[in-house]
Structures are given as structure tokens and as C-alpha cells.
Design a protein around this nucleic acid. Sequence first.
DNA 1: TTGTATGCGTTATCAG
DNA 2: CTGATAACGCATACAA
Lengths: 328, 328
Amino acid sequence: MGVTTKDLARICGVSRATITRALYGTGSIREETRQRILDTAKELGYQPDLMARSLVMRKSRMIGAIVVDLRNQYFPKMIDAIEKRTKESSYMLNISLHEDDKEEEKKLIRAMVGYHADGLILNCINKDEEFENMLNHLGIPYVILGYKAFKNSHTVGVDEYEATRKGVEYILEKGYKELVFVVPPLYDADGIPNIGHEYRRRGFVDEAGKSGCRYTVIYGRDYLTQALDYMRTKAMSKPAFFCSGDTFAGDLINAFGQNGYLVPNDYGIMGYDKVGLYQNFTPKFTTVDNHVEQMGYAAADMLLDMIEGKEVPHDIKIPITIVEGQTL
Amino acid sequence: MGVTTKDLARICGVSRATITRALYGTGSIREETRQRILDTAKELGYQPDLMARSLVMRKSRMIGAIVVDLRNQYFPKMIDAIEKRTKESSYMLNISLHEDDKEEEKKLIRAMVGYHADGLILNCINKDEEFENMLNHLGIPYVILGYKAFKNSHTVGVDEYEATRKGVEYILEKGYKELVFVVPPLYDADGIPNIGHEYRRRGFVDEAGKSGCRYTVIYGRDYLTQALDYMRTKAMSKPAFFCSGDTFAGDLINAFGQNGYLVPNDYGIMGYDKVGLYQNFTPKFTTVDNHVEQMGYAAADMLLDMIEGKEVPHDIKIPITIVEGQTL
DNA sequence: TTGTATGCGTTATCAG
DNA sequence: CTGATAACGCATACAA
């Protein structure tokens, strides 16, 4: 479909080279023919074939983002930010989802390269050497979201250890003497640790340990049962639950509520990953804001710089802040 | 970058046509040379240039989805569904965001066409004739999410009128005699009505009117103030608030809570657009489930069929269901 | 079974 | 100022 430069050339009675000159102002051209070409181009609704252009230019002004899915607000928010930045630089953003499927992730990366993406932003689940090798032979720059999985990769993430440490500090400042860290299973199906949650756990354990207060870690799929059990049989004072994720915290508040435990009277709670989910509820939710949008902006800026051949730092850590609520 | 069929041909000492035959099994080829080519292709990490292929095939196996943004869960959920379906049919999904910018939307559509997208899924904000014209001259099929804005377009949506009507029926069954419909501003910046909310309003008014009970509609940005005012000065019995969106409902519950009004003791409330946001909270939220995933599946199926030249219905309406909670 | 020639729509180079 | 020609990487009809 669609009218091409060839058509325009035929219709305007000039060569295709002249058409290009008229359309993109390269080289010199008589003003009159330029106008005539531009007019007919507009009239006929000429649209350049970006594929053909990319083919010859070896640049597509397209950036690929491959993330797991859009289920919680984490990636949507980040992608919104990335998208704004790439748009500012007149790049098109191509988002694809690997759905936690390692083969799919590789396939998508190959597809992006096949479509001449100028750069990639990855939330990658593959961690092995073969994958690292693949990445380094892509021929285009890429930025990894989250953790530094590979030596040579560029990453944008959060210092989870430091963040959790600060979270514990904050809880202690509020006067709590008894801390419970709630975290999902730390290992995935292949036995590979979820590095983010693991760093958080360490941050918690180190800082809580240093304080000399009572603390414990609850993890596993049955964390709700375990937490309730803690509340019923183990708590010696009003405990603070520090949940490694707002969704867990939300579920916990709900489960506790159904069992007659109310926040912040009977217990304190703090989340992680502020994604705006529970920000409108009473009591206002205390959580760690890991600034997802900032991560998005940073990742996009980094990648755009890399595409333009600029020198960029290898790793960027976005500092967190604590959202003071009423649940502690 | 990357090795091409040309390179393979040179290295294997055959013509490029033979390479193609080896790679895609078209035509006949001696098994030995086939193996040899396949081996070297693998060794050298040959990846087809999808752009070049699309250019000659005039098919890209790529589908574009252009939506406003990913801010609330509505589009992320739908896109997840669309993505699953397109992936099943080995199409790649290219998601882009127009951020409520009419020019941007047109630009993105043109870009998708420029990238030889085989079809488009649109959450379009342009409503005028020029845009309709543009769509119909795209040369590729497209499906519009939401409302039938143009005569000839294919759409997947919800019968909002019917849905709201059913919602009112449900509320009345629960014994309420006093209904308040809460809806955001019904017109956008350009004075064009938000058709979805408008249909909902009509459904509410018609059904509530028919029942003979007391009812009113609250709309505008200050709906919280108005709702509180209603509660304080106008309510004659325990009213049911029917909010045209879960987020409004959430905010309302919160605002009422801060003013000492508790659900479901002091008032009833029902939402719309079940997006899973408040499903974990107590009391469990009563809302209208408009089955976003189903919309996604339907839209993807429809588009894929259209791409394959099949006959498809022009409009698909996804039936809603009511999620029975504890807020009524 | 294999090779040659042509074209997809664009941009770039080099003549004229 | 303009036109012819080649190239990007791939696929395919046709010839050998």
C-alpha cells in the first residue's frame, strides 16, 4: 500500500533522488520543484517506509524495552517514564513482554535486534554466561534494570541493602523494639535467588542485628499464616512488620484486620515498592519509595547517551526515600 | 553488525538462494549442503534481518498497540492479555503510548504503518473525520478498544449502558432506596464527551428513574466535597453510592472514613472497572467487573482474524459481571 | 540440486 | 540543480 518516492518521482516527473532532496532538505534543489513535490507528497499522503529507511541507514530511531509483564504498577510506571524520555529524543519505544519465560526473552531480544532497534532496556531473567555472551554480541547498547547480573553490563537500580537498612532505622526511630521482616520465597524455580529480596533481607538482618532489638524473618508462600502465628504466640511487644513489597503488606493488613488486629494500634507495618496502590487508604501507608519513574528516566538517559556514543557510568543507583504514613 | 546471508553464501561457497533454501526449507536442496549451511549459520550466530524480510515480504508479523499510558491497571491488564494471544500466533506485539496527545497518536500510527505493522489495536482519542479518514487509508486492519467512534471501524468494548443498568438493579435488590451516581467530568478539554461515562450515566438515570426511588448524579472534580455534602445534608436514608470507576470509589471510602462514615454501616458503595486494586481490602469491594482481559483476548483474536482475511463481526461487546463484596 | 536476476523503498555517491 | 546507479538484506521466479 502507500505511495512511495518512486510514485512521487513518476508523478512529479523527476527522479527519486530529487524527491529525497525535496523531502529532507539534503543537497540543493530549486525552490519551485521542492514546493511542487512537497505539495503532491502531502496530497497523496506520502509516508516514508521506515523499514526501508532503517535498512539503508542502519539506524531505526527505535528503542526496545523487554520486561516481564505489566501486572503490578512497577513496570508500567517505569515504562511511562522511559517512554517520555525516549519521545523527547524522538525515539519510538517498542515494549515487549517475556512473561518470565527465558527462551521468550532471548527470542524477543533477537527480534528487537532483527528490527534494528538502536538500543535495549532489559528486565532480564536469564542469568547465565551464554546469555551474557549473547548480550555482548548484540552490536547495540543495552541497559539492565535492577541488578548487576553481568560484569560488563550497564545497570540502573536501587541499593536495596541500603534502602532496607534505612527502613529499619526509621522503624527503630519510631520506638519499636520488635521487628519482623516479611519476604516472599527467595529462590526462583531454578534455584536462583531473587537478588533484590535477598539484598533487602541482608539489609534488614544487619541493621536489626546491630540495634540489639528482637527481630525475625518470615519467608515463604504461607507468610500470612506465619505472620498471624507470630502475632498470636510470639510477640512480646507491639511488633513492626517490614514487608518486602507493598502487595504483601496490603494482604497482611487485610488478614490481620480480619483477625481483629488493627494497625497502628496492635502492630506497625511498613511496605516497600511504593507503587501508589494503597496511598489513598486510611491509615496512610508507610513505605519505601524506590522512585520507579526516576529509574525509568535514568535508564532511558543512559541508553540514549550510549546510543550517541557518549561515555556513561556503568551503574546508577537511585536513592530511596521513606514515605511517612500512619501505619508505624 | 551481524552476519548476513551474503556472508554465509561466501563462506559456504554457495549462492544466497541456496542459503535461503537451507534456512527455510523452501525448494529442494542436498541434505549435506543443507547441514553444512545450517551448521555455519548457527556457529556464526546468523540472525535474519527482520526489516529486510518485512520489506520484501510486505508482512512483518508485528502488531502495534497504541494506548494512552499504563498509569492504572486497565491497559496493562488488557495488554497482557493481548500479548498472550499475539504471542500464541507468533506475532510480536509493539506497544506504544500516546499520552493523551492527539498529534502523538497520529504520529505513532504513522510510525507503526511505517514499520509495516500487520495490524493495529487502538485506544484512540482522535474522534474527527480527518482521523477516521486516516484510519481507513492505513492499508492494514485495526481494532478500536472501547466505543464505536467511527461507522466502519471494528471495535471491542463493553455495553456500558447495560452494565450500569444491571449495577443499579443489583443495588436495588440489596434494598437501597436512595442512589447516588458519582462520575468524573463528562467532557474532555475539547468539549467532547467521555462517551463511556456518559453511557454509564444514562444507564444509571434510566434504571434508577424506572424504579421510582430517590436518586441523583454527582459529577465534577469536586465530587468528594459534593458526596460528603450529600451525606451530611441531603440523605434521607442509608444511600448507595455507585461510582463510575473504582478509583473514585476508593477515594470516596477514604474521605468518608476520615469523616466518620463507615461502609457498609452508614452507606453502601459500588465501584466500576474492577482492576484488582482494592480486592484485598476489608470490607471486600463490590464492583462491576468489565473483564479487561477478555476484552484484550477478543481484540487480539479479532485483529488476527482480520489480518488473515477472515470475516469478523464489526463489534464485540464483552458482558460484565458484578463482583459481590461487602460494601453494599 | 543450484545459481542468476530482480525487486522491496530508501539513502548516498558521483556524474552531468 | 538534477539524474543515474548502487547499496542495505532478503526472497523468489526463472534459468541452468
